[in-house]
């Protein structure tokens, strides 16, 4: 569903990703870990086509990102949660969700039932639908960001540190929901710093250090491997 092969990227003259190879198979939940500045968000942006690969190949849903614009991803069934949530702050929560729904469903007819579903999943959202998204609390924004990515029922969801800044209780809830979405058949690439939580629900994991994959393997193995821990904890 998603594959990076030997990808290099750079910001101006500064190289960032170096020969990065990552693969996410249909139905998998893959966790991408790494310390600050490792290049996780750069990887996210490269997958989305916001940052272009200088070398190598980026395939998403069987399409080559070299010739595919960011704006075409959603229609292929890709839901995105960018770093820092990035809701449209002056749009209402409902408008944010509407855009997320239209993007993936191609303006399908089922917005209302899907909206209800999301409100059941994230009860906090329901009474905030008419509120400007920028006025929500950080935790609520995180919920809306995830709901915005999920509401159109994407096949693949890519999230960049969605749990950052949430209270422990909310983090549990967040991972519970992510895991549930995965169990229902959605493929997920989860970018995380919280190794225990991330690997706890993932099938496989990658540890990114300085733009390279330092370690990869089944989540359980990574979780118990000392090497992985020492790399970033």
């Amino acid at each position: 569903m998603l594959e990076l092969r030997e990808v290099d990227t750079a910001y101006g003259p500064v190289p960032m990703l170096r020969g990065l190879s990552i693969k996410v198979q249909p139905g998998e939940l893959v966790c991408l870990l790494g310390p600050n500045g490792a290049g996780k968000t750069t990887t996210f942006m490269t997958v989305c086509g916001v940052v272009r690969a200088l070398r190598g190949k980026v395939d998403v849903m069987g399409r080559d990102m070299a010739s595919l614009g960011t704006e075409n991803l959603a229609a292929l069934g890709v839901g995105l949660v960018p770093e820092g949530r990035r809701l449209f702050p002056s749009l209402t929560v409902q408008e944010n969700l509407r855009l997320g729904y239209d993007a993936v469903s191609g303006r399908g007819p089922d917005f209302q039932p899907q909206l209800d579903k999301m409100c059941d999943l994230f009860p906090r959202i329901r009474e905030r639908l008419r509120q400007a998204a920028g006025t929500l609390s950080g935790g609520e924004q995180a919920m809306v960001a995830l709901a915005r990515a999920l509401i159109g029922e994407p096949k693949l969801v890519i999230m960049d540190e969605p749990s950052l800044g949430l209270s422990p209780k909310l983090i549990d809830e967040y991972f519970e929901i992510t895991s549930e979405v995965h169990r229902r058949g959605t493929t997920i690439l989860l970018i995380e710093q919280n190794a225990e939580m991330g690997l706890g629900i993932a099938d496989r994991g990658y540890v990114l250090v300085k733009g390279r994959v330092a370690q990869e393997g089944p989540a359980r193995e990574l979780l118990s491997s000392k090497a992985a821990k020492s790399l970033y904890l």
Partner: peptide, 21 residues
Amino acid sequence: PLGLRIRAASEDRIVARMMGI
């Protein structure tokens, strides 16, 4: 719908593109 997209793009063009705009 077009007006909504215009407002979204004027707030965050990159995320707007992620939303298929």
